[in-house]
């Protein structure tokens, strides 16, 4: 942990169930979790244990059934739709397993999207996007389409996109699972180096035990519950 104790995310007794054709499946069965500013928290656990559901709730793109989840003091469940959109647009950055870059936009245009959503004019947004691409080592590939980039480069573009609007929380879903070991390691180095600082928190959902070492804390989930929260992979 980077020595910061202010809570970025505070989940209390968060419950989420899915209705699968009459059967209720409990995805989150009363989650309690705090993620601090300046912290890189990893959520680990077997498939179907509720990791993705939890980051969806934390990111404000899925409503829990009960309990509260405060992100920087705002209870997203009780925000109106427009306020929640604005909150997400300003405060949250996303990095996805499959990168989810828009295939017909070049790197600069992809990175500029969060700025455009926040109302920045196109020219200024693309200028700023080019600067962030420079930061992630892709300054020369700004005009490249996603299909012209390697997996590692695409993930760097995705990281640039997550950072460009200077959000306070970055949620990453399996950011290294589509990458080979070395590229995955480099991506994590980059994330830690450029994304993590005292005013920002990172939540990473992963299966990839090779990157556990980058975490400040690791929350192990199973069957919709957090089994334990540890400071290092050895304690899992």
């Amino acid at each position: 942990m980077n020595g910061q104790s202010t809570a970025a995310v505070r989940c209390q007794n968060v419950v989420k169930t899915y209705d699968t054709g009459g059967d209720k499946v409990v995805a989150l069965g009363g989650i309690n979790l705090e993620i601090h500013m300046g912290e890189l928290m990893m959520l680990v656990g077997p498939s179907g244990c509720g990791k993705t559901t939890l980051i969806s709730v934390i990111a404000g793109i899925l409503d829990q059934d009960s309990g509260s989840c405060e992100v920087f003091g705002a209870d997203l469940l009780h925000l109106r739709s427009g306020e929640k959109l604005k909150f997400r647009a300003q405060n949250i950055g996303f990095v996805f397993q499959a990168y989810n870059l828009l295939p017909s936009l070049n790197a600069v245009e992809n990175v500029s999207i969060p700025l455009l959503i926040n109302g920045v004019k196109r020219q200024a947004a693309e200028r700023q996007a080019a600067q962030v691409l420079e930061q992630v080592g892709l300054g020369a590939r700004g005009k490249s389409l996603p299909s012209q980039l390697s997996g590692g480069q695409q993930q760097r573009v995705a990281i640039a996109r997550a950072l460009v609007h200077d959000p306070r929380l970055i949620v990453c879903d399996e950011p290294t699972s589509a990458l080979d070991h070395e590229t995955g390691h480099n991506v994590m180095e980059l994330l830690k180096q450029v994304a993590l600082h005292r005013d920002r928190a990172l939540v990473i959902v992963t299966h990839d035990s090779r990157i556990f070492g980058f975490a400040d804390r690791i929350a192990r989930m199973d069957d919709g519950h957090i089994e334990k929260v540890v400071d290092s992979a050895e304690d899992l």
Binding site: A59, I61, G82, L85, K86, F87, R88, A89, Q90, I92, F94, F96, N100, L102, P103, I113, P114, I117, N118
Partner: peptide, 16 residues
């Protein structure tokens, strides 16, 4: 749809 989903997740409104 996935691309629209990405835009929506990042805060794009239904109106946009």
């Amino acid at each position: 749809l996935r691309q629209f989903g990405v835009l929506k997740a990042m805060g794009t409104s239904n109106w946009t």
